[in-house]
Every structure is written in C-alpha cells, then in structure tokens.
Design a protein around this nucleic acid. Structure first.
Lengths: 343, 343
DNA sequence: AGTTAAAATGACAACGCTGTCAATGTTCTA
DNA sequence: TAGAACATTGACAGCGTTGTCATTTTAACT
C-alpha cells in the first residue's frame, strides 16, 4: 500500500539515492536513467514522504504564510495563491494568522519555526511592515518574502513584492477628477499602515497635477473598517456638507461600503449627489448598492509571485525562475458608485 | 541552537524514551520524573520536531481541513477554529480547498494523504455531504469528522457535528410570522445542499404551525450567491408582486444582500414595504443597508468542536474529551432589515 | 589503446523521534 | 521477608528520506 523510495528504486533497478536525485531534479542524472526512474515513479504512483524529507534534508518543504489582516477575502486570496504554487512544487503550507496586539507573537513565531523547520515565510501587510519582525527573522536566519505597499523605487526586489497603491490611488482620483469632481474627500485607513500613506500620496499627487489645492478637512482617518467608513462619511458630510464634497475615496472597499451606508442614513443619493469609490475589488464591492467603482488588486496572483520569489530564494541555483513580477498596480474598475458631478 | 529530545534527556538525567513519554502524556511516568523532565523541557524551551514525530510514530500530528465552500468568511472561521485547537494540542494544520467540479479531487486527496500521513480530516459542507467522498475515506481508513447541516436525530455522533438549520429557519420564519407577515418568500440555495432542504423544511414547519398554507410560488431556488439573490427577488417580486409577498427569507446572508440590492432597483423600501432576513451572520450582514436580521452561526466554535471530536477519535483512550458539543443551532439576531407588516 | 578527468551512481550514516521489548524498581501478598 | 505482580524506565531499531563520500561508468584527451 505505502510506496517508498525503495520500492521505486527496486522497480527502476537503481539505487535509492538516484531516485532521490530524480525527484529533486538534481543535475547529473543521465536522461535515460531519469526516464526509467520517472516511469517507475508513475507506475507506482509514488509520492515522497514530506516528513522524511523535512527530517533528512537540510532544506524543508514547508512554507508559512503569516497574516494579521482581518479581511477574509484578502486572506483567502493570499492563501490560494501561495497554495497553488506549493502544490506545483510539492511544498506544504502552514498558515499562521496572528495578532500584532498579542505580545507573544515573537514566541509564537519561534515555536512554529522550531516545530516544523520552514523553507521560508510569506509575510503579508500590515505585518510585513513591522521592522521588529523583519529583524527577528533576519536574526533567526529565516527566509522570507514580504508583500508590501510601496513603489518600485526601492531595491529589495529579492525579498519584496510591491503593490503600488500610490499609482492606483492616483488613477482613482484622476477618474473622479475627470468626472468633474473638485472637492474629493478621502476616508483613509490607519496611518500606521503603509498602504494608507501610499494611497494618500497618490490621491494628493493627482489633485496637485490637476491644480487642486489640498484641504486637510477632506481627509478622515479611520481603520479600514466598515464602521469607520460610516463614521468618516458622517464626519465629512455631516452638518450640510460644509466643504461641498461631491466625491469620496474609500481607503478600501469596506470603508466605501460604510460610506454608502452612511449616505443612506443621510438621504444622499449615490452617485447622483455623491460619488464613492473603493479599493481592492473584493467580492463585496459588487454586493453593495450601487456597486462600487474600485481598484482591482489581484491578490491571488500577487501571492503566487510571492511564493515563487520565496522558492527562488530557497532553492538557490536549482531554481532560477525569471518571470517573477515584483510590482503590481491595482487597476481602476468603474462601476455604478461613481458618476459625473451634478453641478 | 536546535534542541532535541536528547538534550532534554541529558539535562533531566533520564532516557530519551522517558522524555518522549512525558511529552506525549503517556501514563506510567512517575510524578517526580514527570516534573524533572518538564523542568528540563522548559529550561531548554524544547519543541518536539513534527517531522520526526510524524515519521517515527504510528499516529500523525497533522490534520487536514477540507472545504469547497466559496464563502471566505465561512472558511476563515472554520480555519481559525480548527487552528486554535491544533495549536493547543501541538498539531499542524494543512488546508485543502477544493472544487467538487474538478474530476480529479479523489486523486488530489490521495496525494495529500500520501505526502503527509494525516491524523484525520475535518470536512465541511457541502463537501461533507458527498457520499462518494465518505466512502473513499472509509476505504482508505482515514479518520474524519464531518460538519453537516442536519438535526440531532441521527446517531453518528462520533464523526459528525450537526448544524441545526432546520430549527434556525423555523425561528427566523416564526420571527417574521410574529411580525404579522403571511406571505413569506424563500430564496433558497441549491437543493443539492442539505442546508437548503433543512432550512426549507424549517420554514415550512413554521408556516404549518401557524396554519399558513404552503405556496410553491413563494420559493425560488438559487445558488447561495449574491447574484442569485438578486435574480430571486426579481423573480418573486417582479410584475407588481403578484403573490403579495411582504417578507423574504434569504437562504444565506449573500442571497439576502442580493435581495436587498434588487429591492433598491425596484424601489422597494426595506423594511417598510418588505422584510428581508439572512442566514449565518457573516460580517457583511452588518455591512448592508439596512443591516440584516439573520441567524448567527458560530462557525469558529463549531470547527473547534469538530477538531476536538477528531482528536478524540484519533487518540483513542489517551484523550477522552467529554464536553464536545455535536449539535449547534444558529440563533436569531434581529436587526433592521425586518419589521412589522405595513398592512 | 591508454590515460585522465569528469560525470553518474551507489553505500551508508544520519535526521529526531516513537515502538518494542527487556530490565529494572516498587508495592503487595502470604 | 520472600516472591509475585505491577509500575516505571531504558536500549535499540527503524520510520523514509537526504548528505557525504567512495566507486563505477563515460567521455576526452594523448
């Protein structure tokens, strides 16, 4: 029933070690031998045992995905992306949700790493921005790849995948400007997050390029949550909309949905009286009324590339994956929540 | 740097095997010895190596979570529940998203199982309902626990966790009835799913108990998706609401949100002209306008118990966890989407 | 063909743990 | 208090791989 490397070796008439070489795609195996072994592998439907591989080898076949993002859609997409690569490469995925508020995160990490020696980690924002964590990992000598909000100017192209929120925010803002909006509010996330400042800067740059002066009163800092979107919209639009805002940029889809909700409460018609945009294009940007104009972020693709980058690092020479994209720019998706100014 | 069982044994002045006994909580270790060993474990901060354990032992320390549910919130909750138990018990979790449409699911399963021998699987609906899968697992001799929609009448209390959708649907329907609604529509999911038929029966039972006759025209079969919720609401309410429906039961929160969306399109005020209810209490039932009345389903708790049940099976005598709940009934949460009939 | 270097393969000991079974200690019985 | 019965511990092999290093085969030269 259970097929081991020995069974394959016997059937192929070679040594155990040669089979090992074949399944690890090591060089210096004659083509002919390779084929014979692969035939045996296929006939027996052999699957190398992960535990044995992890135990015996210097490198491991387990990668970890670490996240502290409360957004379920985001997490699932990241998981699926990494998982799809893992499957192809014969790796196993260990997921590690965590909470930056928990003081013992460091301990937690160490435990995880001791228990199953890891090939490396994929870190997702906002946790991937925490320098203390990066330092710890460096100290421990753990490989990792970070998914970060940022612009391709930087050069850690070996350990980072960038999501260019700046450019995306610029594009969304430009979209609103082209619809005639002048007073555009921004419901941004927590400023601790890099994505927030990136998106904010993109927004500001677009305004500047259209010669529109900045107004801090149009910016509300929330926490990327639905609730804070509600609060933000109320704060910016309340008391008869003193700043005459005609469009609202949501820091993400949830905040935009919150703004939509608040608009309903205040009797504001969307998009006739107010345009609202989201960010991320999570499924629920299509499940609001009206559907949200947003920036599509291909999280599954992003995480696939993160995994590929990790594998490239991990396996050094054996794997020189060249087509890894390290910068992604979310792209504008126009739906019903944005429209021309009525004025 | 790397602490092994041998280091602990040396420090404690006992044999490797005794340390093994302690960390596995085997009986027949003298209290005094146990304490000495545990002291050594703590001083060295020892973490048993999972790969070695899996390789050497007859039982494994890896459990799998299998799902084919597209609902991200649901999946995350299930993951977190199982994960929290795994952490406590020193197990590792391997997640396995899959697609029942894929023909090669069986192969996929086998591969996963061969690669890392598993202690067992937690199966979630609707995949947990597929008899072919259960048979396959039985054949392969793999332990599993199924999370299923159903009522506690059945007796597989050793391998199943039931979610009593029947009772929950009964409760929601009763809620609507008590608000004065007589013509209550039902936007149900795919009838292939057990949850659909359970919810449908609960709805029908409630109507019956209130002496309201059934009307098939009030039932629309969708696919538990937002889109099908939109379609269903249009179908039932279109052409001037021929059946004079005043309340709509959504098969889940997404369908309810779809119905909400459709109502907007049709100019129907919620809840003044129409009450709409969801099912599951996923985060987005709080992110619609108005917020959804729904049935709260504690998915994380459910999956924790599923994991506990699996561990009990797996470890036989060593673990006689007695407080495992095997039946959960989602409970009514009243929000703004339901109200009294205007009539 | 004879030599040498390089490429391809194999033998065997790890990896860190658990299972088996034998060897001790301990407690109880008569 | 001897002897049996049981509780506690330890020695050692083996889980299925990979790393190391020795050996054989092939290719590349004179």
């Amino acid at each position: 029933m259970k097929v081991t490397i020995n069974d394959v070796a016997k059937l192929a008439g070679v040594s155990m070690k040669t089979v090992s070489r074949v399944i690890n795609k090591e060089p210096s195996v004659r083509k002919k031998t390779y084929d014979i072994v692969m035939d045996a592998v296929n006939t027996l439907n052999y699957q190398p045992n992960l535990a044995a591989r992890n135990l015996a080898g210097t490198s491991s076949f387990t990668v970890g995905l670490v996240y502290d993002n409360p957004n379920a859609y985001y997490v699932i997409d990241m998981q699926n992306g990494v998982l799809s690569r893992c499957k192809e490469e014969g790796y196993e995925l260990v997921i590690h949700p965590c909470n930056y508020l928990d003081g013992n995160m460091e301990e937690d990490f160490k435990t995880m790493i001791k228990r199953s020696r890891l090939a490396g980690l994929v870190l997702t924002p906002p946790l991937s921005e925490q320098n203390s964590i990066i330092e710890m990992l460096d100290e421990m000598g753990i490989h990792y790849v970070r998914v970060l909000s940022g612009r391709p100017t930087e050069e850690d192209q070996d350990t980072c995948i960038y999501v260019n929120d700046y450019a995306a925010a610029y594009e969304i803002t430009s979209h609103l400007l082209s619809l005639g909006h002048k007073n555009i509010g921004f419901l941004c996330g927590d400023k601790e997050h890099k994505s927030t400042t990136e998106r904010l800067e993109g927004y500001q740059a677009a305004l500047k390029d259209h010669s529109i002066s900045m107004n801090d009163k149009l910016i509300y800092e929330g926490q990327y949550s639905f609730e804070s979107g509600v609060e933000g919209a109320k704060a910016l639009l309340g008391e008869n909309n003193p700043n005459n805002i005609t469009a609202l940029l949501g820091g993400n889809d949830e905040m935009a949905a919150g703004a939509l909700f608040a608009s309903r409460l205040m009797g504001i018609e969307i998009p006739q009286q107010l345009s609202i945009t989201g960010f991320e294009d999570s499924p629920f940007s299509r499940q609001t009324w009206p559907k949200l104009t947003t920036a599509h972020q291909a999280n599954d693709v992003i995480s696939q590339h993160a995994a590929r980058l990790l594998f490239r690092k991990t396996r050094g020479a054996r794997n020189q994956d060249k087509d890894i994209i390290t910068t992604f720019t979310p792209s504008l998706v126009v739906r019903e929540s944005s429209g021309p100014t009525s004025a």
